[in-house]
Design a protein around this nucleic acid. Sequence first.
RNA 1: GGAAGUUUAGCUCAGCCGGGAGAGCACUUGCCUUACAAGCAAGGGGUCAUAGGUUCGAACCCUAUAACUUCCACCA
Length: 874
Amino acid sequence: MKEMQTTYDPKDFEDRIYEKWMRENCFRAEIDPSKVPFTVMMPPPNITGKLHMGHAMDETMQDIVVRFKRMQGYSALWLPGTDHASLATEHKIVEKLHEEGTSKEELGREEFLRRAWAWKEQYGDAIVGQLKKLGSSCDWSRLTFTMDEKCSKAVREAFCRLYEKGLIYRGSRIINWCPDCRTALSDEEVEHTEDAGYFWHFAYPVEGSDERIVIATTRPETMLGDTAVAVNPSDERYKNFVGKTLLLPLTGRKIPVVADEYVDPEFGTGAVKITPAHDPNDFEVGLRHSLPSIRVMGDDGSMNELCGEFAGLDRYEARKRIVEKMKELGLLVKIEPHSHNVGHCHRCHATVEPIVSKQWFVKMAPLAKPAIDAVVKNKTKFVPDRFAKIYFNWLENIRDWCISRQLWWGHRIPVWYCECGEVICSREDPTVCPVCGSTHLKQEEDCLDTWFSSALWPFSTLGWPDKTPDFNYFYPTDVLVTGYDIIPFWVMRMMFSGIEYTEKVPFHDVLIHGLVRDELGRKMSKSLGNGVDPLEVIAKYGADSLRLSLVTGVAPGNDTRFTEGKVEAARNFINKIWNASRFVLMNVDCDVPAFGNIRLQPADRWIISRLMATIREVTVSLQKYDLGIAADKLTDFTWNDFCDWYIELVKPSLYGGDPEKKRSALGVLIFVLENILKLLHPFIPFVTEEIWSFLPGERGNIISEEYPRYNTKLSYKKEAKTFEGIIDLIKTVRAMKVDVNCPPSRKVHLFLIAEQRRLVSVNKQSILRLAGASEIEFIEKGEQAGEKTLSHVCEIGHLFVPLGDLVDIEKEKERLKKELERVTGEIARADGKLMNKNFVAKAPKKLVDDERAKKEKYLDMKQKIEEQLRLLDD
RNA sequence: GGAAGUUUAGCUCAGCCGGGAGAGCACUUGCCUUACAAGCAAGGGGUCAUAGGUUCGAACCCUAUAACUUCCACCA
């Protein structure tokens, strides 16, 4: 039999184990009617780059849940994939082309797409590699890319259905335009920041008079597109202006003064220039007053041909020139600093321009309603549930979704325009116009928003719209794991899409996690350069340590800080398990009896009792997605109970020379270790699998083992409680020795007045070893343990330890007096409660009983301490 | 202008149904005890942000306040 290395080194086996899992098809989810399916769709990472720490946490959480469910006997499918990330990817490729001295226009659509697919191959593979390094147990046979044929088919189906229902329309609306990416954006893709700017006050002259009206604007360049000035109808200052005509400076265009409630008289000058083509509010005002809409800016953010001398200028250059010009004309009244909310493209951070443009939209109101209802009715639950509020907030205030993008990389909109004017939306590429028979059809140039295909992810991956066996078996999915920042982009859209297309919610639970921040609590970002590469951490500490560190001490939905110290702590814990396992295995030199055939000793029953309690707590926590609590319980049990206590307690049995005792001890050790490894496997899959392979006997992979189950017959609650008296005894002796500076090597003689002599006797060797004692001697009440003796009342009885020269009687008296004080205080506290009639009457009976028992215990302690004090006084 | 979150040990954070405040790291002391110094043992350290309220009983529930964080919102 091969042996375990003396130190834990994950590099020795992580890759090898992953290959083994792959080779043996351990991640493959089968359609098995005898099993219950459990489905998780991996949020497909963008192919724009490599995975960051946030992904690492997201994937780890999913893997933990999936491995847990798989071990529980579900047919667990974790379907992996990647996202084409239309805008983000195209942006990156365009940047790269720019560096190469070319452009997408120069290459043309076809060549550009060829490059994009090459990009996808490269980065998609890198991501898959990273996921494997992390230990992700996803079903690679079902790996999906959002532009795979099946997804494209689903996208077309979805688009056509909405189009046919009249829920998709094309129209000219104000949209968010990114002049750098040169595409429309949805509202969600715009980030607002409070930017410092100015308020320019311009005077607009009234036609045929000397009167002027002063407006304030933050975007002077848009004045070229003004088609009115609006004032509040109740504003006395401007009453006489309403209906008059103004001469728009720089253009001489005649524009009316209109009255509209939208204007806030308190803000600015109370008069607002109206530019319907370049401002969402102005657009609305324009509609109400039938104002023309004049677009003065091109797709690249420069002023267009309507702008006279400013034509061709960049928007900011134009702003400068216009302000100068207005000043020259004496129409610049004043400039005041003003900070306001400015929208930025969330991809390239360029300032977004609201622009009127012909785009495709999804009508949201009819889709939002059922998506809200589903969560209200608990068909889908958010964990933690407070995130439901954020979800509602979005859906309740939602506006129509602009889905067209002026991009090439993505799903091209399945609409064709015929020369006769017919618009054809089709699942198949049409060749002939159904109206005029023409074959001159042109497909819509625009692509769909990436999130349009992401919205279909829970079912497009399973073959929808076809009724595939996968779809029938695995859909709807069980849990979606993602960050709170993705709720508006994705969760919400999957919800209404799932309900609309499949008539089922796409998942029952949404497990929301927070962001992984840096050591100082800052968001990890490229610009700050504070990101930590998961692969580097894995290289140094191993994937298991990284995984464990990402879920311990983390509450659902809360942000967490990444520190190397946490990874180190996780590594140390894993090292502990490694060595504990090594210890157990190096003692195996005989057949280990089956657990059921072992006559259990009190210590055995204690550890098994603790094991059962742990199994129960961990299982409950995992079912509630409380991964942090589960990890915490497991660490505590493994390290404290198993390693620090149980292993030490059974060493005398291993070393004592009695083969029967040794065999039994080994049996229990192996049994508990097996359970620990299984319980921990979802968290730290590699090392548990590796250790598992060293355990004696024929066994398969731990990944395919059954998750431990709570067994009432093995709970031994009462016996475990009693056994804790032994632990308490050992701790007491240790503390006594430290208290008097007794060297650990100096063995002490223990005298004990106790009722449970048998329990003590059975564990005598363990007690001697762990307490650093030479002998335990039972004495009767009233009997003396000799001169210079320290005493302590512990759970199991009254302990006396003669320590000779180390004992300072006066100090011991002091200590006893203090102890007496404490105990007296405890009695008073218990009395305080028990004398309270309300407590006795209203508190649960168990609590009252417990309180009475405590009082009894302390009274007994008090008596013993007083006795001892009297003795010392004599 | 709305909304959510956070505030607990020196640091980072847990804390379930309300029933004697926890972990890791750091710190102090002693130990290389034949698995592990990435370790063992024993310790010190908290006005659970503040003020009220509900309750027999509050870190936990309610109200208000403060500080910080985040999301949303068209005030030109």
